[in-house]
């Protein structure tokens, strides 16, 4: 278990995306932090690191990855961890996060966030992998609940119960994606509010908000839409339970102008503030 703790941090942020690079470099964008996709900056030089260094001078940065594959039965790849550590040392981020999922196995990488069975064996694998990551990075990490489109016949516990035990065993914390709870809840027929009620309050360090799309049979976590009303409502439920938590909006496709993203972030501020006053 990692001895270090993540320093308290609250506020409202956005994901740093290429269409907005220029504005982040040229003016003081009113966000409390930015989140970067780690892999986009795990490079050897050039413009990406130049941009990241400049943004880092203006804003605290959270690093969010998509390739750690914390649930792989064959472990986390050492070369990936070395490159991630190099970036962590350069950025000194607020925290480092990735997803509770697996992306690859035995030399194959799907580059997708594939679901895990929530079993005792998976718990052992995930916790061993988290311990290894936290040892190399010399800091506790955050793991995010993924959107999922299938479940497993051998599931032995709920996702939130799995995450609670995982945090307890490893000292890691949670990045709670409200949209993912809604998407998975709709797809698998569980109550998103009951899910939130089962998440350990003290472990939630960041919240993601995003939009989704209706697929043929399932909701799909597309990040190409504004945050929809049911997700905003669930965010208010989360605010009531967790209190002030660093919150950001993810948008990865059909990315609107920065002004629209900032306006949407103001909605998050207003809703969180309203819940805080009501508490």
């Amino acid at each position: 278990m990692s001895d270090r703790v993540i320093a308290p941090f609250e506020g409202f942020g956005l994901g740093l995306r290429p269409p907005h690079y220029a504005e982040f470099l040229e003016r003081d964008v009113p966000v409390d932090f930015v989140e970067v996709i780690s892999e986009n900056f795990m490079v050897r030089g050039g413009r990406p690191l130049h941009i990241l260094d400049a943004v880092r001078e203006r804003h605290p940065v959270a690093m969010h990855g998509v390739s750690m594959s914390i649930g792989s039965a064959d472990g986390v790849k050492p070369d990936y961890l070395r490159r991630l550590k190099t970036l962590v040392d350069r950025v000194d981020p607020l925290w480092v996060s990735d997803h509770l999922c697996w992306t690859g196995l035995e030399g194959f990488n799907s580059h997708d966030l594939l679901p895990l069975p929530y079993t005792e064996e998976a718990m052992d694998v995930v916790c061993a992998n988290i311990a290894r990551v936290q040892e190399v990075l010399e800091r506790p990490i955050l793991l995010e609940n993924p959107s999922s489109y299938l479940t497993f016949a051998d599931d032995e516990m709920s996702e939130h119960a799995f995450m609670a035990r995982m945090c307890e065993a490893t000292g890691c914390s949670l990045l709670l994606d409200i949209n993912n709870i809604y998407v998975s809840g709709t797809n698998h027929g569980f109550d998103p509010a009951a899910y939130i009620a089962g998440v350990p309050v003290e472990r939630v360090r960041q919240i993601h908000l995003a939009g989704h799309s209706q697929g043929k049979d399932l909701l799909i976590d597309t990040h190409d839409q504004p945050v929809p009303d049911p997700v905003w409502a669930l965010y208010e439920t989360a605010c009531r339970r967790f209190g002030p938590v660093a919150t950001m909006i993810e948008r990865d496709d059909d990315i609107p102008p920065l002004s629209e993203m900032l306006a949407e972030l103001d909605i998050a501020r207003a809703r969180a503030s309203r819940m805080e006053r009501a508490a």
Binding site: S148, Y149, L150, F152, A153, D155, L218
Partner: peptide
């Protein structure tokens, strides 16, 4: 291992 409901997923 995938639940029977998993075809669409």
């Amino acid at each position: 291992g995938v639940a029977p409901s998993g075809e669409a997923g």
